[in-house]
Design a protein around this nucleic acid. Sequence first.
DNA 1: GGATTTTATTGTAACGTTACAAATTCCCTG
DNA 2: CAGGGAATTTGTAACGTTACAATAAAATCC
Lengths: 339, 339
Amino acid sequence: MKNTEDIAAEKPPRPTLRTVAAESGFAVTTVSRALSGDPRIAENTRNKVAEVARRQGYVPNRAAQRLRTGKTKVISLILDPHHEIPDFGRSLIAGISFALKGTGYHLTIIPHFQEESTTDPVNYILDNRLADGLIFTRTEAFDARVRLLQEANFPFVTHGRTDFTRPHAYVDYDNEEFAYQAARRLIDLGCDQIGIVLPPERLTFSQYLRYGFMRAVRESGIKYDIPEEVTLDSPAEALWAVYRDRLDSIARPYGVVCAGETSALAISSLFIDQGLEPGKDFHLVVKRTSNLFKLHRPVFRSIYENIFEAGTLLGDTILKVASGSPPAENQIVQKSVPD
Amino acid sequence: MKNTEDIAAEKPPRPTLRTVAAESGFAVTTVSRALSGDPRIAENTRNKVAEVARRQGYVPNRAAQRLRTGKTKVISLILDPHHEIPDFGRSLIAGISFALKGTGYHLTIIPHFQEESTTDPVNYILDNRLADGLIFTRTEAFDARVRLLQEANFPFVTHGRTDFTRPHAYVDYDNEEFAYQAARRLIDLGCDQIGIVLPPERLTFSQYLRYGFMRAVRESGIKYDIPEEVTLDSPAEALWAVYRDRLDSIARPYGVVCAGETSALAISSLFIDQGLEPGKDFHLVVKRTSNLFKLHRPVFRSIYENIFEAGTLLGDTILKVASGSPPAENQIVQKSVPD
DNA sequence: GGATTTTATTGTAACGTTACAAATTCCCTG
DNA sequence: CAGGGAATTTGTAACGTTACAATAAAATCC
């Protein structure tokens, strides 16, 4: 009944609490407590147990712990695989991983594919008790996922705020301030008109961008436009289509606030192809989330959103919330970093 | 002793095999078999059990399954958070997730931070029996991780080949062919000299790039150079330092094969800043792994490496290998896609 | 110096599932 | 219709851990 590969390799069975207990002469319960730092155990005992455990190479069986305690020691991140903000996914994962490192928690990725409802992955995680905490991104004003998780009383942190009155934990970037600062910079550069490329309206951060942009507009009385169809998620073709018609009616120099590097690249190439001269006929201020475009020519004026840091904040926060910290005390707005 | 939040919410206990067994009138074992598709169960029984399970909202407890069977139903991916190939991490994760979808397997991310040895995450996974299979990237010729995993007889698939004689499962991109094709294109464009920007030598794919490049060089007898210090991982400054001195001695038009979009951007901006004219004084052919630079001006000539597809192949492969398929039968080399 | 608290340790019983061996039912053959 | 084998179903025993109640040992009190 043995596998052929087992013939050569004498497989010693994994050490368990029982084997450590047997060798050290203490009870299984004592060993368990000693290794998990229970204060009831005498220092002397703890040391002896630890020594035997170390020598046997004992590693606790997570499945057993999980079954017994009901805690998974897992945090899930819902990731939209088709959402192309340069480096966003990697940096966020890196940041969360960094925060989780050494805590015994692991990160699992639950993909959200486009054909699915946003709540599908959430229901999946809830039904299968896959995690002790959940992180997700790109919140909407009245996000169905938030509602679902609050009803289920399940710990979660969002990247982005919502408009619900019942508070939940979040980490958000100050997009209002970003858009305001970006618009101000364009105005200071002497633009006669400014515009902004917005992500889909339903996403809350789109609204914050709009507010910030409009604040600068109202303050200065500058001519502005927000092309209806232009969204960050639109393919470049959409951007082209929209701007092609209005290129003649636009005052120059024209300034554009870009909430992402992809749209900046699209706008920039479009304008250049149409014969506009960067730095003379138009200016861009871009929200930078990666290092990729630092080498781009013409140089993008940018303001930095630190996604890795957002990840570490999300990781730290979900650990707190999962261990009972009230959501209302775990709301963070990340400040802009001028480049 | 009850939490305050429990007062309002009558928490019905989770349905288990036992509750389904009780209601349906069958034994626990029978219910277990019925739900897992065991052929020993009569069709009639299976339907009745399924009906009760559905009505109770039964979902199997993974922790219990895991404890009992020893299978984690988890695949781990070791991710280098600081490794900045545009979209690489996200696309790979998306592809693996896509392959895993519906199989009951989950993907956990184990970060590899730079200060650690490459084998640390592997040992961590082995010691904690965190997964049934492992995926990692950026292989070296005699990769310590491969040796470790082969000794432990643990299922794994690499992204990238190695030089070990004992076969292991891998998915790799045909970098030799890429570099050859890229160099040919530069030669056909009329370059008088060509160069290549290589990743660190220890990575096997760097060697394949070199072979492919040299094959084209030998075939054509063209003048070439491979600057010693220029690596994909070097910051842009390193590229600048290296090319600054040799700019005068280089024959024009000069062609460069870039194994990544970041280095292409660096080279391009450097040359332009130094007064070279793209398309006249120099040409680039780039390995493209994202959609980001499609809008870049000047247009990059590129050859596409489909990372999402690599992810799906890795995911499919690890599932096969984890269920016993011999490594030697799971070796895939992905072809280039001309852009 | 006996009663009482405090400090350490122990044994037993789950958590929910599947492996295994055993029992039951059913169907067919002679 | 007895006998034999296949088809179904059942009961019991783990997997390795922690919660809980109970015990034993040591320290403290009056």
